[in-house]
Simulated assay, not measured.
Amino acid sequence: MDGLMLDSERAMLETWREAALTESIDADDGLWLSMVGMHDRASFAMLAGHLGEDAATRLRDTSYRLYDERVVAGLPRKNGLLELLDLLEARGIAKAVATSTRRERALSKLAASGLIDRFGVIVTGSDVEHPKPAPDIYLLAARELGVDPRRCVVLEDSEPGVRAALAAGATPIQVPDLVAPGEELRGFGHRIVASLGRAHELLDAVLRGGDGRVAGGVRG
Rank of each mutant, 00 (worst) to 15 (best):
E53I: 12
L81A: 00
G182L: 14
D136M: 14
N79V: 15
V218H: 03
L6T: 05
E156R: 13
G209P: 05
S34R: 10
V128K: 08
A56M: 08
P76E: 04
A142F: 04
W16V: 12
G182A: 10
W16P: 07
R151T: 14
L47Y: 00
E104F: 07
R191Q: 06
L207F: 05
V147N: 00
A73R: 06
H190T: 01
E156S: 13
V147I: 10
E183D: 14
R70W: 04
L47R: 08
S8K: 08
G182I: 15
R91F: 00
S158M: 12
A112H: 02
S158I: 15
L59C: 11
G80E: 02
A205G: 09
L88A: 03
R10W: 04
R102T: 09
E14G: 06
P160R: 06
I93F: 01
P131C: 12
W32M: 13
L66D: 01
D68M: 12
E69Y: 02
A90V: 01
E89K: 00
D2I: 11
I137C: 06
Y138W: 06
T101Y: 01
E23P: 02
A27T: 12
I173Q: 03
G37C: 14
L107C: 11
D28Q: 11
A98S: 14
L140F: 02
E183I: 15
P160Q: 09
G146S: 08
L88E: 00
L178K: 05
E53T: 14
S195E: 09
L155P: 03
G120C: 09
E129G: 13
L185P: 03
G146F: 07
A170F: 12
A73C: 07
G161E: 12
G220E: 08
L87R: 01
L81V: 00
P149F: 01
R186H: 07
V36G: 05
A215D: 06
F44K: 09
A164C: 04
Q174I: 10
F188R: 13
E201L: 15
R186T: 09
G161M: 13
K132G: 03
V36C: 04
V72P: 00
L178V: 10
G182Q: 12
S63A: 14
R17E: 11
D117V: 11
A11E: 04
S8R: 06
I173R: 03
L110N: 04
V71M: 02
V154Y: 07
E9Y: 13
A215Q: 10
G37P: 13
L51V: 09
L185E: 06
T99F: 01
L59I: 13
L166D: 07
L196W: 09
L166Q: 06
E156Q: 11
T22H: 12
D68K: 09
L207I: 07
L75N: 01
E104I: 14
D28Y: 04
A165Q: 11
R105T: 10
V71K: 01
A96E: 02
L185D: 02
L31R: 06
G169I: 11
G114D: 00
Y67S: 13
S108E: 11
V121F: 02
D68E: 14
G80Y: 02
V153K: 04
A168S: 11
E184G: 10
L6A: 09
R70D: 05
M5F: 10
R102I: 15
